[in-house]
Design a protein around this nucleic acid. Structure first.
Lengths: 112, 112
DNA sequence: ATAGTTAATCGTAAATATACGATAAATAAT
DNA sequence: ATTATTTATCGTATATTTACGATTAACTAT
C-alpha cells in the first residue's frame, strides 16, 4: 500500500537548507563562492578569466547562486558587480551548524 | 572568444564538498539525515512510515545518500539497517566549516 | 552615429533527478 | 512448501540541470 503525494510541506528551515545545499552542490559554484568570499566582490568577466567555461555557463551559475539568495548582483553598467549576500550567507552557515550539531532534538528542528 | 572544455579538474576538497552538498540538496534527504542522526540507525520502513512518499522513492533517496558516502546500509535480512557514516559525516562537517570560515586563503583551498 | 565591451538571455542538446507503480530477491513465519 | 515481509531495482514519465553558441540589451568610448 504505497502512498502517493506530489507535494510535501517541509519546514522553512528544511526548505532553506535544501536550497542552499543545492546551490553549493556544484564545484564551479563552490569556486565562485570561495572566490567571492575572498575578493568580497567581482564581475562576471573575472570569473570568465579564471574558469575554463563559456561565459554563458558562468552567467547561468551566477543566476542560480543569486536565486538561492547566496549572492547579489549590483548593476554597474555595462558590468554587474557580484557580492556575497552576507545576510543569507550567515543564515546558511547557521543552518549547516545546526545540521551538524552533535546533539539536537529531531522534533524541535524537523517539522514535516 | 569563448572557451570550450567539458571536463574540469577540481581539487578533491571541492569535489567532496560539492558531492556532499548535492546530497543535502533535497528536503527529503535532510529529513532522513536528521532522523538518522537522532536515532543513530533505522530501517527503510521507518522512513516509509514517516514520509508521505512511495517506498521506491525513499529507497532512491537512500541510495543517493549512500553513494555520496553520508550513510551506510548494513544488510540485516530481510531488512537493511541504515546509519550515518560517521567518518564522512565529520568530514563534510569540516568542509562546511572551512567554507564558512570568516577568513581563509582562497588559493590555499581552491585549486582548479 | 558607430563601434566596442560586458553580461544576460535564448535556443538547444544531453545528462541527471524525482517521482511513481510493478516486480524481484531474500528471508522469516506458518 | 507456501505465504508474508521488507526493500532494492526496473521501467517510465516528467522536470531540472548543465553545457554550449548565438543573440540581444545596455552602456562606453570614439
Amino acid at each position: 500500500m504505497n502512498k502517493t503525494l506530489q507535494q510535501i510541506k517541509y519546514s522553512q528551515e528544511t526548505e532553506d537548507l535544501a536550497r542552499f545545499s543545492k546551490a553549493l552542490g556544484h564545484p564551479t559554484r563552490l569556486i565562485i563562492l570561495k572566490y567571492l568570499s575572498n575578493q568580497s566582490c567581482c564581475y562576471t568577466g573575472d570569473l570568465v578569466d579564471i574558469l575554463p567555461l563559456a561565459q554563458s555557463t558562468i552567467s547561468q551559475h551566477l543566476k542560480e547562486l543569486k536565486e538561492a539568495g547566496l549572492i547579489d548582483g549590483e548593476v554597474n553598467p555595462p558590468r554587474i558587480r557580484y557580492c556575497i549576500n552576507q545576510k543569507n550567507w550567515k543564515k546558511s552557515k547557521k543552518l549547516f551548524q545546526t545540521l551538524f550539531q552533535e546533539d539536537f532534538n529531531f522534533f524541535s528542528v524537523v517539522k514535516l
